Amino acid sequence: DNLVIALHSYEPSHDGDLGFEKGEQLRILEQSGEWWKAQSLTTGQEGFIPFNFVAKA
């Protein structure tokens, strides 16, 4: 599955970004460039995340 774990917390800075906490698990929905579309397994919310803040779970 496309699961990743957050290496750092991220505060959203643009509409459509997904904020998350360090250690949170996310499911990657789309990989494109440096911003990936993801869904939080904690909150169920979707949005874009910086790819370098996460690692394969």
Rank of each mutant, 00 (worst) to 15 (best):
Asp1Arg: 09
Asp1Trp: 12
Asp1Ser: 10
Asp1Tyr: 11
Asp1Leu: 10
Asp1Asn: 11
Asn2Met: 14
Asn2Ile: 14
Asn2Cys: 15
Asn2Leu: 14
Asn2Tyr: 14
Leu3Ile: 15
Leu3Val: 12
Leu3Pro: 01
Leu3Ala: 03
Val4Arg: 05
Val4Met: 12
Val4Ile: 05
Val4Gln: 04
Val4Glu: 01
Val4Leu: 06
Ile5Ala: 03
Ile5Gly: 01
Ile5Met: 06
Ala6Asn: 01
Ala6Arg: 01
Ala6Gly: 05
Ala6Asp: 00
Ala6Ser: 03
Ala6Lys: 01
Ala6Trp: 02
Ala6Val: 06
Ala6Thr: 07
Leu7Met: 08
Leu7Ser: 04
Leu7Trp: 06
His8Thr: 10
His8Leu: 12
His8Ala: 12
His8Gln: 14
His8Ser: 09
His8Lys: 14
His8Glu: 11
Ser9Gln: 07
Ser9Phe: 07
Ser9Cys: 09
Tyr10Ile: 03
Tyr10Trp: 12
Tyr10Ala: 02
Tyr10His: 06
Glu11Ser: 13
Glu11Gln: 15
Pro12Trp: 05
Pro12Val: 06
Pro12Asp: 02
Pro12Ser: 14
Pro12Tyr: 04
Pro12Lys: 07
Pro12Met: 04
Pro12Phe: 04
Pro12Thr: 06
Ser13Met: 15
Ser13Pro: 06
Ser13Thr: 14
Ser13Asp: 09
Ser13Asn: 11
Ser13Ile: 15
Ser13Trp: 12
Ser13Val: 15
His14Ile: 09
His14Phe: 10
His14Tyr: 10
His14Glu: 08
His14Cys: 15
His14Ala: 12
Asp15Ala: 13
Asp15Lys: 12
Asp15Gly: 09
Asp15His: 12
Gly16Leu: 08
Gly16Cys: 14
Gly16Met: 08
Asp17Lys: 09
Asp17Phe: 15
Asp17Cys: 15
Leu18Glu: 00
Leu18Met: 08
Leu18Ser: 02
Gly19Glu: 04
Gly19Ile: 04
Gly19Thr: 06
Gly19Val: 05
Gly19Ala: 11
Phe20Lys: 00
Phe20Thr: 01
Phe20His: 00
Glu21Ala: 13
Glu21Thr: 13
Glu21Tyr: 11
Glu21Lys: 14
Lys22Met: 09
Lys22Pro: 04
Lys22Arg: 09
Lys22Gly: 04
Lys22Phe: 06
Lys22Asp: 03
Gly23His: 05
Gly23Thr: 02
Gly23Lys: 01
Gly23Asp: 06
Gly23Val: 01
Gly23Ile: 02
Gly23Arg: 02
Gly23Tyr: 05
Gly23Met: 03
Gly23Glu: 03
Gly23Asn: 05
Gly23Pro: 00
Glu24Met: 04
Glu24Trp: 03
Glu24Asp: 11
Glu24Ser: 04
Glu24Tyr: 02
Gln25Leu: 15
Gln25Tyr: 15
Gln25Arg: 13
Gln25Thr: 15
Leu26Gly: 00
Leu26Glu: 01
Leu26Cys: 04
Leu26Ser: 00
Leu26Arg: 00
Arg27Asn: 05
Arg27Asp: 01
Arg27Ile: 13
Arg27Tyr: 09
Arg27Ala: 06
Arg27Cys: 08
Arg27Ser: 04
Arg27Met: 10
Arg27Lys: 10
Ile28Leu: 09
Ile28Arg: 01
Ile28Lys: 00
Ile28His: 00
Leu29Tyr: 05
Leu29Val: 08
Leu29Lys: 04
Leu29Thr: 06
Leu29His: 02
Leu29Arg: 03
Glu30Trp: 10
Glu30His: 08
Glu30Lys: 07
Glu30Val: 09
Gln31Pro: 05
Gln31Met: 13
Gln31Lys: 13
Gln31Trp: 13
Gln31Ala: 13
Ser32Asp: 12
Ser32Thr: 13
Ser32Val: 14
Ser32Ala: 11
Gly33Ser: 05
Gly33Leu: 03
Gly33Met: 03
Gly33Ala: 04
Gly33Cys: 07
Glu34Phe: 15
Glu34Cys: 15
Glu34Asn: 13
Glu34Ser: 12
Trp35Ala: 04
Trp35Leu: 08
Trp35Lys: 12
Trp35Ile: 08
Trp35Asp: 03
Trp35Arg: 14
Trp36Ala: 10
Trp36Leu: 10
Trp36Ile: 10
Trp36Cys: 10
Trp36Tyr: 10
Lys37Arg: 14
Lys37Ala: 05
Lys37Asp: 01
Lys37Ile: 11
Lys37Gly: 02
Ala38Asn: 00
Ala38Lys: 00
Gln39Asp: 01
Gln39Arg: 10
Ser40Ala: 05
Ser40Tyr: 02
Ser40Pro: 00
Ser40Met: 03
Ser40Thr: 03
Ser40Asp: 02
Leu41Val: 11
Leu41Met: 11
Leu41Asn: 03
Leu41Ala: 05
Leu41Thr: 07
Leu41Tyr: 04
Thr42Cys: 10
Thr42Ala: 14
Thr42Ser: 13
Thr42Phe: 08
Thr42Leu: 14
Thr43Ala: 01
Thr43Asn: 07
Thr43Trp: 01
Thr43Tyr: 01
Thr43Gly: 03
Gly44Tyr: 07
Gly44Gln: 07
Gly44Lys: 07
Gln45Glu: 11
Gln45Asn: 10
Glu46Arg: 08
Glu46Ala: 09
Glu46Ser: 13
Glu46Trp: 10
Glu46Cys: 14
Glu46Thr: 15
Gly47Leu: 03
Gly47Arg: 00
Gly47Glu: 00
Gly47Ser: 01
Gly47Phe: 05
Phe48Glu: 05
Phe48Asn: 09
Phe48Tyr: 14
Phe48Val: 07
Phe48Thr: 08
Ile49Pro: 05
Ile49Ala: 00
Ile49Phe: 07
Ile49Asp: 05
Pro50Ser: 05
Pro50Tyr: 11
Pro50Cys: 14
Pro50Lys: 06
Phe51Glu: 11
Phe51Leu: 09
Phe51Lys: 15
Phe51Gln: 13
Phe51Asp: 08
Asn52Ala: 09
Asn52His: 12
Asn52Asp: 14
Asn52Leu: 08
Phe53Gly: 05
Phe53Arg: 06
Val54Thr: 03
Val54Arg: 00
Val54Phe: 07
Val54Gln: 04
Val54Cys: 10
Ala55Asn: 06
Ala55Ser: 10
Ala55Gln: 11
Ala55Thr: 14
Lys56Leu: 13
Lys56Ile: 12
Lys56Asp: 11
Lys56Met: 12
Ala57Arg: 07
Ala57Gly: 09
Ala57Trp: 13
